[in-house]
Simulated assay, not measured.
Amino acid sequence: MTESNEEALYCIGCGAQIQTTQPNEAGYTPQAALEKAKETGELYCQRCFRLRHYNEISDVRLTDDDFLALLTQIGEADALIVNVVDIFDFSGSLIPGLHRFVGDNPVLLVGNKVDVLPGSVKRTKVKNWLREQAHAVGLRPIDVLLTSAKSGYELDDLLAAIEKYRNGRDVYVVGVTNVGKSTLINQIIRQTTGTQDLITTSRFPGTTLDKIEIPLDDGHNLIDTPGIIHREQMAYYLGAKDLKLVTPQKSIKPKTYQLNGGQTVFLAGLARFDYEEGPKRSFTFYLDNNLLVHRTKLQNATDFYTRQVGKLLQPPRAKEVAAFPELERIQFTPKEKSDLVFAGLGWVTVPAGAVIAGWAPKGVAVSLRKALI
């Protein structure tokens, strides 16, 4: 925050109190920029400055209470809710209790990062799976779309759907941190404005604390909301360097291993796959291409993990091991060809009848679904 002996300063764009110590929190501006702004009289936080001059929106984290207050406002509004989720981490990218806050407002569910799925994955299957998962937690999306915030994949279809379903209303874009929501909004800004002047001269950003209002042609707004921190995301436990090893940036190249019963495959030090019983079978892993995969014997796996986590098995890095949650085990025996999904990492396609177990940090979901391929 600002120094205690100084008068509190506020961003003239979003109203957040200016602070110079926490880059990921609301109101952050570098000290050098703050000194310059005091001279000009135009004081913007870094987020609003980048938006105003470069059309770039960055994510800002709120406390749980702040975000709940924001969700309550959304439920009281008459608007279309665009909920952005991560295809690789659906459970970790759900906003807890969102279905209770949206009221009668329609929800458009958008699965991000579709561009890194292998070409053999049918998009219709992914959409159907996302819809099923949403229904399971009480969310009833009016439609489900797939996109890529990074590449702009099918952005035109998304924009058309937003225009169709908003029916002349405001649009709230919501999502947890690390799902690519801000990158997606940046794509929308670039595609819909085509010029920086419109952004710079309009009533933009909005004056409501911690929201950014992007003006639409009919006087309504597309409203970016800050991301909530979800503590059941794998990303929550990783630093910026390791996030690059976990979050796929390019199309995934599947890796198939022939495993005998009694073998374990470690996904770096982040998760573990056990083939407990059965004859020699093929298992296909869909993970970031750079993530370390290591095979060993099941009977030695626990001891091996204790000795090598943070060393051979990293991430997590050695200095982060103490804060990394203990892995918890869940056993499955699929009756049909299935995917064992490690939320935030990827999945393993397993044959019917194989006795398997998935291990992940406490709170991070491991689940079974019908195979996408």
Rank of each mutant, 00 (worst) to 15 (best):
L68C: 14
P141C: 01
V137S: 09
A134V: 01
D143Q: 04
L68W: 12
S151R: 14
R131I: 12
I81N: 08
G103Q: 04
Y172N: 07
L62I: 10
K164A: 09
P106M: 08
A69W: 12
V114N: 12
S120P: 08
F90W: 07
G152A: 12
V85H: 08
Y153L: 15
L68V: 15
I162R: 02
I188C: 07
Y172L: 04
N112G: 08
F88R: 09
T72K: 15
L108N: 06
D64K: 15
F88K: 07
R131F: 11
F101A: 14
F90P: 10
V84R: 06
R166L: 05
R190V: 01
S148I: 03
E76F: 10
Q191V: 05
K150L: 07
F101Q: 12
G175R: 01
D115R: 07
E132W: 13
D64H: 13
I95V: 07
D170F: 08
T193D: 09
Y153M: 14
Y165I: 11
L109E: 08
R166K: 00
V102Q: 02
P141F: 00
N186P: 05
S93K: 12
I185T: 02
L80G: 06
L146V: 06
R140P: 07
V173S: 04
K164E: 03
K125S: 15
S93Q: 09
V116L: 02
K164V: 01
I81K: 02
I87R: 03
Q196D: 15
I185F: 09
L145Q: 10
H135I: 14
K127R: 11
A79F: 09
L146T: 04
A149D: 01
V137A: 10
K122L: 15
A79Y: 02
L159R: 00
A160I: 11
A79W: 05
H135C: 05
V85G: 09
E163L: 07
G168Q: 09
N83A: 11
L158I: 01
F88I: 13
I162C: 05
D156A: 13
R169T: 05
V144C: 04
V114W: 04
K164W: 05
A149E: 03
F67N: 14
I74R: 03
V110D: 00
F101L: 14
K125Y: 13
R190Q: 13
I81D: 00
P141V: 03
V144Y: 05
H99D: 12
L155M: 06
Q133L: 13
L109R: 06
V173P: 03
R123Y: 14
N167I: 06
K113H: 07
A160W: 10
V110E: 03
D89S: 15
G180A: 09
V121P: 00
S91D: 15
L117A: 03
I189V: 06
T193A: 11
I95A: 00
V84W: 04
V84D: 09
L108H: 02
V107A: 08
L130D: 10
V116H: 04
Y172V: 05
G138F: 09
I87G: 00
G75K: 05
E163W: 01
I81T: 10
T177V: 15
I162D: 03
T63R: 13
W129Y: 14
N128L: 11
T193R: 13
I189C: 03
L139C: 02
L117D: 04
R169F: 00
E154P: 05
F101E: 10
Q191C: 13
R123S: 15
Y172T: 04
D156W: 07
L68M: 14
D66N: 12
L98Q: 03
E132G: 07
L80E: 02
Q196I: 15
K113D: 05
V114P: 03
